[in-house]
């Protein structure tokens, strides 16, 4: 493989970051600090995960792979819960949703022998599943919370007519699931035409046969559709209860 052989050559791309910083300063976007934090964090995190993955590859132990993926699920749940702010039990809801999505999709890929049970496949695929499920979980959680506050009169009207919490929240749940799934569905529809997905780009640059790259990318896309759907639906069905009492009343914190 040519190029990108040293850390030094990767650091040259910092020049491109400088463009963003100059733009921020020039247009007074006040984003220089954020950009700096993002650059440093991404460098440190990627370098660290690189060494971790390298170490785990060396172990050739599936237990270590599971441990790493478990850690990623917890970090994803924490990130999602922080985004969702005041949603009660957000961490537990996101952890279950992302965890089940990861186990179900990776488990299916392994059971059907679509991918081999090796760290080389499980860690990158798991990372993608967990990352995308986390985004879906955050979107669903925040959307339900915001819509419940905004549409409180409708929810109350439904409850007053004898609707259960589930029946009263159903229209909100539907919209929040749509908002979580549509970006990925659109990306899947336009893939190959408007953009080439990261995994495929990476494989082609790394010298893989483009058709081999496509085969893996198709697996990835379908896997993501499945896992994101699982995560969004689980977040929806688990989280709406947090906003109601068992006696089908909106909780006090849900302000309108």
């Amino acid at each position: 493989m040519e190029g990108l052989q040293t850390v030094g050559s990767a650091l040259l791309t910092l020049g491109l970051v400088a463009v963003a910083v100059v733009l921020s300063l020039y247009e007074r976007l006040d984003l220089e600090r954020e950009i700096g934090v993002a650059v440093v964090r991404s460098f440190v995190q990627l370098a660290a995960i690189g060494y971790v993955i390298n170490f785990i590859f060396g172990l050739e132990n599936l237990g270590a792979v599971a441990l790493l993926l478990g850690g990623m699920v917890l970090f994803a749940a924490w990130t999602s819960a922080r985004r969702a702010g005041d949603v009660p039990r957000a961490f537990a809801v996101a952890a279950v949703a992302v965890g089940v999505a990861a186990v179900a999709t990776l488990g299916l890929l392994l059971a059907l022998r679509v991918v081999p049970a090796t760290a080389r496949y499980l860690i990158p695929l798991g990372g993608m599943v967990i990352g995308n499920s986390m985004n879906a979980a955050s979107l669903t959680l925040t959307r339900i919370r915001d819509d419940l506050a905004e549409q409180r009169p409708k929810v109350e009207a439904a409850l007053a007519l004898g609707a259960t919490s589930r029946q009263a929240v159903a229209p909100i749940l539907r919209v929040s699931l749509q908002s979580a799934l549509i970006p990925l569905i659109d990306a899947t529809k336009t893939t190959g035409i408007i953009f080439l997905p990261g995994a495929m780009v990476g494989m082609i640059i790394a010298g893989a046969d483009p058709l081999e790259a496509v085969r893996l990318q198709i697996v990835v896309l379908y896997m993501l559709l499945g896992s994101v759907s699982i995560a969004a639906i689980l977040v929806g069905t688990l989280s709406y209860r947090s906003f109601f009492t068992p006696r089908h009343q909106l909780r006090k914190g849900v302000s309108g």
């Binding site: 009169p153 409708k154 109350e156 009207a157 439904a158 409850l159 007053a160 007519l161 004898g162 609707a163 259960t164 006696r247 089908h248 009343q249």
Partner: peptide, 19 residues
């Protein structure tokens, strides 16, 4: 049962909120 209670005692709000 709160659902039964709400069917027995109906409510009309300031805003109609029709479905």
């Amino acid at each position: 049962d709160p659902l039964e209670l709400r069917r027995r005692v109906g409510m009309v709000f300031q805003i109609p909120a029709l479905f």
